[in-house]
């Protein structure tokens, strides 16, 4: 419950307070810590630029999550149009063959990232809001401007897909353990 008053300085102070969570949300959306920090930076720039559009009395972090999601989706689209390899999903599928990646694949964060990156962007945003950030369905629906039924169906589909991805990982670990 951020009651952010007028004034850029006030907004800056409030943004600093929500940065740790924004950083986590961005890491989940972007697929890696480094890309997440880039996304966070773009999000903060956009938020400062548009601070006038923030409605006092609403949650600043929700508003920023939404900016981050939009920027991420725009960025992914632009990367596809340009045909560059900036798209994190592409990067992810290209990795995975070298030895270092095999070691990393055993870490929980790498597995979590892989599972999230296998989701469509819209499901990933809802999953990150609810499961990683611990927000209610109503919060998530408001922040992402979705009907609550959409939040529910995306969460169910996201979990189904995640189960597929992670089940593969467990099998691989069993193989490796033999």
């Amino acid at each position: 419950m951020y009651l952010v008053g007028q004034g850029a300085e006030c907004m800056r102070t409030a943004i600093v307070a929500v940065l740790p969570r924004l950083r986590r949300f961005c890491a989940a959306m972007a697929g890696s810590a480094a890309d997440g920090d880039d996304l966070m930076q773009a999000t903060v720039e956009r938020a400062l630029l548009r601070s006038g559009q923030f409605e006092p009395g609403t949650r600043l972090d929700s508003w920023m999550f939404r900016i981050a999601q939009n920027l991420h989706i725009d960025g992914a689209r632009a990367a596809k149009r340009r045909g560059t390899a900036v798209d994190v999903e592409v990067l992810h599928s290209l990795a995975g063959s070298d030895g270092r990646e095999l070691v990393e694949s055993r870490s929980d964060l790498a597995a979590a990232q892989r599972a999230l990156q296998a989701l469509p962007e819209d499901q990933r945003a809802v999953f990150a809001m609810v499961v990683i950030e611990g927000r209610s369905y109503r919060d998530a629906a408001e922040a992402l401007d979705l009907p609550i039924g959409t939040v529910m169906s995306r969460l169910a589909r996201a979990r189904g897909k995640i189960a597929e991805t992670l089940a593969g990982r467990q099998d691989a670990q069993k193989e490796a353990g033999r």
């Binding site: 979590a112 990232q113 599972a115 611990g134």
Partner: peptide, 21 residues
């Protein structure tokens, strides 16, 4: 299964929000 996956992912990301800015 879903519950375990949720906590794996939420737990994996928890330290990201704990790291100092």
């Amino acid at each position: 299964e879903w519950k375990a996956n949720d906590s794996l992912i939420a737990g994996a990301f928890a330290p990201v929000a704990e790291a100092p800015i």
